[in-house]
Design a protein around this nucleic acid. Structure first.
Ligand SMILES: [Zn+2]
Ligand SMILES: [Zn+2]
Ligand SMILES: [Zn+2]
Ligand SMILES: [Zn+2]
Lengths: 130, 130
DNA sequence: TTCGTTGCGTAACGCTATAACGTCCGTTAT
DNA sequence: ATAACGGACGTTATAGCGTTACGCAACGAA
């Protein structure tokens, strides 16, 4: 379950995401892998599912896209936050212990058992503002 | 721009969301309003756009659904968080000043100008755990 | 062997959202 | 008044995102 033994498809999808300079939609990944044998969306989605499980890839819920994890080694990142530039598409991945702890507090106080947390800030990055 | 003067379509969409006991997809709203004259997705999406502008409705990015604001009077809620139960579909809307401030800090420090923030915790609610 | 699990390939389908028309109506300027 | 504009509306078609359903092949456990 802890990865390290990716299948051919999984490696190609992860490769496409790593090579990209920003998040990619599943169908964009498909297009970029067509000349390497990909034919159908399911090939991409199946690979993505596993890569998400392994923590090597993150899904950006607010833009229906996927991005390679920026810190695949820092294994423990619980809830991650993303800053997504709406101009250039660049994404910054970060995590904040205080935010995590506050959201954890709320969950505990309300008897809510969290499974997956999404924190996404959309806006304009420093580069695009300059 | 500050609402108070909803059109017929906007009122019907808001009514459908308020009457529902949980978030609804745009197409579910469409189905529920068919006998009141709704025919096409665009009628729903156009109304939703305005209602989102007015702050009367929130979009749940991680499940492609919409929900009536739980506190339409507390006008000022900047970035809101949602706890979404994956069992029963119930949604709790809350806001945490510390979380907001921490995310604001990160943005300021990184020269990022935020426009819209989504915080969504998926998991299992207290009721469904019991 | 037999079975269960996992990954893969293909086709079809369903759900989510927008583009591109044209129309109607109330407000405003001439 | 009437022309011009903006905003909401209706309809059709299309684009984009994701899953269901089927069958096959490989591998390890029983
Ligand atoms: Zn990561
Ligand atoms: Zn940018
Ligand atoms: Zn609200
Ligand atoms: Zn529940």
């Amino acid at each position: 379950m802890t990865a390290r033994d990716l299948t051919k498809n999984q490696e190609m999808v992860l490769g496409a995401l790593s090579a990209a300079d920003g998040p990619l939609s599943a169908y964009t990944i498909l297009d970029r892998l067509r000349d390497r044998g990909f034919r159908a969306p399911l090939q991409v989605y199946r690979a993505l599912d596993k890569l998400l499980d392994y923590g090597l890839v993150h899904r950006l819920e607010s833009i229906n896209a996927f991005v390679a994890c920026a810190h695949p080694h820092c294994h423990g990142h619980g809830s991650i936050a993303f800053a997504i530039c709406e101009k250039c598409g660049q994404v910054e991945e970060f995590s904040d212990a205080t935010v995590q702890s506050r959201l954890g507090d709320w969950s505990r106080e309300h008897g809510f058992k969290p499974s997956k947390t999404a924190i996404e800030i959309r806006g304009t990055c420093a580069t695009c503002l300059a």
